[in-house]
Design a protein around this nucleic acid. Sequence first.
DNA 1: TTATAATACATTAGATTCTTATGTATCCAC
DNA 2: GTGGATACATAAGAATCTAATGTATTATAA
Lengths: 112, 112
Amino acid sequence: MYSSELIKGTLKTIVLKLLSENKKMYGYEITQRVKDLTGNKIQITEGALYPTLHALEAEGILTTETEFIGKRVRKYYSLSKIGKAKSKEKVNEFADFMNTMKFLLEIKTKEA
Amino acid sequence: MYSSELIKGTLKTIVLKLLSENKKMYGYEITQRVKDLTGNKIQITEGALYPTLHALEAEGILTTETEFIGKRVRKYYSLSKIGKAKSKEKVNEFADFMNTMKFLLEIKTKEA
DNA sequence: TTATAATACATTAGATTCTTATGTATCCAC
DNA sequence: GTGGATACATAAGAATCTAATGTATTATAA
């Protein structure tokens, strides 16, 4: 687990990237996917995620569809057209930022 | 300039790294150094920097010495012994975080 | 069978960290 | 002698997160 301040500001980028690779995902699924992909190093809390998803939907970046699994509701999120552009923009910005920080901190990163 | 949310949480790390490479630096100098090194992409505001420096000093991570340039005061900050360790720790943590993010943002669609 | 964990949504109080604005004062160049 | 740069500082408010709490369903192990 990283100190919480590090993760601040990356949540939107992570969500948009995941949704650019998966047609639709629901909130809980996103938390679990990130947890699995990062070996528990990044754990998105629901208190952070849900308000963010709601905000992205209000901005027209995400669209939703509700599905019932038995009696339990599941709310799927997808990227809108604007959202797809926004996703690329956010990931590119983060990539640029990483290069700047890498230079500033003289860090060597793993080769892809 | 990056969207402000991206920079959140990186300020301490940047400051500690700069101070690990310079025996002493003063606040205004830090803002200018970062601006120069990043080609204006990261601009640390004084409203963010000074409270952070004060907090790091209160934690025993930084020590200070005051110097007068003419009549103008200049407050130099240096890493304490604890600060040197903290600096390495922070930079290492950020490096680790970058690797995690790099992986997370380059992943391909998982098989359904 | 029952209670515990996992799934799945949601909100809220409070903490942290930043932006923006403001304030004071000195120094330099034109 | 005025404007911009240097150099410190604080403070209100915004943004974003944590931690706690709440509701309800479903799966599982004792």
